[in-house]
């Protein structure tokens, strides 16, 4: 097995993200938009906003991953490139992982990088925790994108698959959301929670590609 097909799949997925015209701007816009709606709904009390800010960003991150994932494999199935990728020398799981990782780089990581700015809008103090949280959003986001990729691959041939993807992956997002929120909560579990967060992301990286590979073979069938 040569790595050439995997690298090519990765490169094509990166190109595709930027070729859409907006690149990372679209998911970033959605993420920020979803987050800034919250103060309009719950009021502007600084204490409340400071308490819920990190959690709101977890929810926004989960939602943006769902919204942007819908097309990642569906487009491949429609334009025929999925057929070509499945006939390379690389296993379907590795192609799927490369594409999903590229997708996280262009649509998930920018959201984590933007998080300090949004947390400041939610009345967070300027301290090291902002950078720490950024890291947690990056790690947790990776798990969101990989589990989300399983849903996207399963729903690749389903018209209007977005709702289906959300329903399928919602339970799979639970551990990441819980560990992520606990890691930032400052409670007694906040020492161990980052490790659990990292472990659950590693679990996603280990399991999800095989499920995506099997699902993509099904989508091409």
């Amino acid at each position: 097995m040569s790595p050439a097909p995997i690298l090519s799949a990765f490169r094509q997925a990166l190109d595709e993200a930027w070729a859409g015209g907006a690149g990372a701007l679209l998911p970033v816009g959605f993420f920020a938009g979803a987050a800034v709606l919250v103060p309009l709904g719950v009021g502007t009390d600084p204490e409340t906003l400071r308490a819920i800010g990190p959690g709101i960003l977890w929810v926004s991150l989960a939602l943006s991953s769902l919204v942007t994932l819908e097309r990642i494999f569906q487009a491949d199935a429609e334009d025929g490139s999925l057929d070509l990728w499945l006939q390379t020398s690389a296993p379907a799981a590795s192609i799927a992982a490369a594409k999903t990782f590229a997708h996280w780089l262009t649509a998930g990581l920018p959201l984590a990088l933007l998080s300090p700015l949004l947390l400041l809008m939610f009345q967070a103090q300027i301290d090291g925790a902002l950078l720490e949280n950024m890291l947690f959003y990056a790690i947790g986001g990776l798990a969101f994108y990989f589990w989300g990729g399983v849903g996207a691959a399963l729903a690749a041939t389903v018209r209007r698959g977005g709702l289906l993807i959300s329903l399928i992956v919602l339970p799979l997002y639970v551990p990441t959301a819980i560990f992520g929120a606990l890691a930032m909560g400052g409670g007694p579990s906040s020492v161990a929670a980052p490790l659990f967060l990292a472990a659950s992301t590693l679990f996603a990286l280990a399991v999800a590609p095989f499920a995506m590979g099997a699902a993509l073979r099904l989508a091409a069938d």
Binding site: L154, I168, P171, V207, A215, L218, D221
Partner: peptide, 13 residues
């Protein structure tokens, strides 16, 4: 096929 993939992923989780 789709159901089996999802049920197994779910069970692992």
């Amino acid at each position: 096929r789709a159901g089996a993939i999802l049920a197994m992923v779910g069970a692992l989780n």
